[in-house]
Write a protein that binds this DNA or RNA. Sequence first.
DNA 1: GGCTTTGTCTAGTATCTCTAGTTTAAGCCT
DNA 2: AGGCTTAAACTAGAGATACTAGACAAAGCC
Lengths: 202, 202
Amino acid sequence: MCAMARAGLTADRVTLTGAELADDVGLDHVTMSAVARRLGVKDASLYAHVRNLEDLRGRIALLAADEKTIRIAEAIAGRAGKDALVAYANAYRQYAHDHPGRYTATQIPIQIDPELLARAPGPRRAVELTYSMLRAYALDEPDLTDAVRLLRSTLHGFISLEAAGGFAHARPVEDTWARCLDGLHTLLEHWPAHDDDKGEPA
Amino acid sequence: MCAMARAGLTADRVTLTGAELADDVGLDHVTMSAVARRLGVKDASLYAHVRNLEDLRGRIALLAADEKTIRIAEAIAGRAGKDALVAYANAYRQYAHDHPGRYTATQIPIQIDPELLARAPGPRRAVELTYSMLRAYALDEPDLTDAVRLLRSTLHGFISLEAAGGFAHARPVEDTWARCLDGLHTLLEHWPAHDDDKGEPA
DNA sequence: GGCTTTGTCTAGTATCTCTAGTTTAAGCCT
DNA sequence: AGGCTTAAACTAGAGATACTAGACAAAGCC
């Protein structure tokens, strides 16, 4: 019929299209059919580049991790202390706002092809960045690891709750965000030594 | 053929079955068909009690919110200060461990029937409980609201990352958890006043 | 016992995932 | 250039799912 040129699909192109779709309509409306439609291709064609839907979602998650890591790296370059913390957190949050579908993909209980994971620099580098960003707070192991985990938990939790509409409208979310960063900074500066005392009630 | 007695379905029974299924096989394997199978019923029968799959997931989320709130209320009863904080956090985390599928349901960007939401005591009461639990730290508004949001963010984020396998195995997660609670307690006791000074780098 | 209500089923449509096998385009080799 | 090889895309189709419409039967009410 029409002189069909090849579509020029690659795993990366399929993944990127899936990621765009996720940002547009939400991750769980990302279907093989929808991605194929957006690419102007039959859905069966995708299976030459991507194992299945779960694999595609894993690839979107890795793409997001890579992109987010790059943004964070750019944000904290040349900064230290609270400056770096705030830049880190804002870059993190901004990425989630700019790419809600991709960010959601990073949350799914991980079922990623290990070989693919090993090839992706994002997740590993993200942890390294966090460690080096916190280096200014002069924490020793294992406190440093604990602080990294606390920081990641708080940022991820905040953004996740925010995205889910978990914060009522009474107080502006921006203000709370700023105060939370203040709080984290304070906490990191005064990371408690191991204390076995029972804190007394007020 | 066989003298069919009625199955005795209700919206609550369908929801509960869906919740059990979510804990068993993961939330996104909860399908109308699977729930119907587990109930020994045709899938079309479910639509008399539940609007559709999205509605079912919303109901599971509300069920989880209610259950979680009850556990937390029991845990913090009669406690104050750090005792209450730890009890709160552990009850929260334990619920997520006991009911991973239901907990996942609480994370989905909320698309719940408003009327149903208004009828469910869980979410509202959860916020109230958190406020009253933090009362011991003597924070005034708007700091109190910010602290509530920070606490929820950190707990949710930690549990979410933990469930997603986000913590490498080097350091025991239990230890990190305990130290994070120490940190939160410290932070709540020394909630920073509004400071506009730039924190100096190390 | 008849009537209404409503819970469950049968039947059917549309969509989706994924596989097998076929066609055809692109690159290579002489 | 023409033929061979490889791989990309397609056609066709099986199996599963979400959901609807309409039939039927059980429970409760009089």
